[in-house]
Amino acid sequence: MRRNEGEAVRTLVQPGTPLQPRRILEWADVGGDLRITLAGGQDLLLGVTQALEARGVRHAAVQVLAADIARMAYLTGQADASGQRAATYGAPTWLEGPVTLLGANGILGPGPGRATLLHCHAVVVDAAGRLHGGHLPPGDCRLGPGGATAIAAPLRGAAFAAAYDSETNYPLFQPVRLAASGGGE
């Protein structure tokens, strides 16, 4: 990793050749939103993913509106000392509940192995009142008795799907056109 010095705003040199276009936009058809409530005791990300898959939805924009968390892990970013990537995740931070979720954004789509994946970042406050936040690894966020509420906008006609990105050397969600018959579901 190298830094472009002497600039007011720093940019990073990625391991791969810059790809074009730098901004990608695909239009998705509007459909009805889905409000999801999850009972306590289950995993937040897996619960949202499974609830949407049960409705045939594999692509969506998700906002978690509220969640009561019994135990969770999150990851934060840092420079990648190996030089293989511009940034990577550090070791997980574990929180014991009660943890209160303040907000979370997620993108649902087919992951690198084609299984449906919810890429989700969240901000939470712990039992002592301290703020935390980061990337939520699927399977590591067990809900407390209060459960969770989320709102999802299913994506039809266009959505995100994971594909290898040679510029960053990561599999990343990329905008893709969907077959008309398959829609976002």
């Binding site: 990608i24 511009a86 969600f173």
Partner: peptide, 12 residues
Amino acid sequence: GRLAVIRLRPNE
């Protein structure tokens, strides 16, 4: 209205 599915690449 419509939903816009957007990705910004590094340094944008």
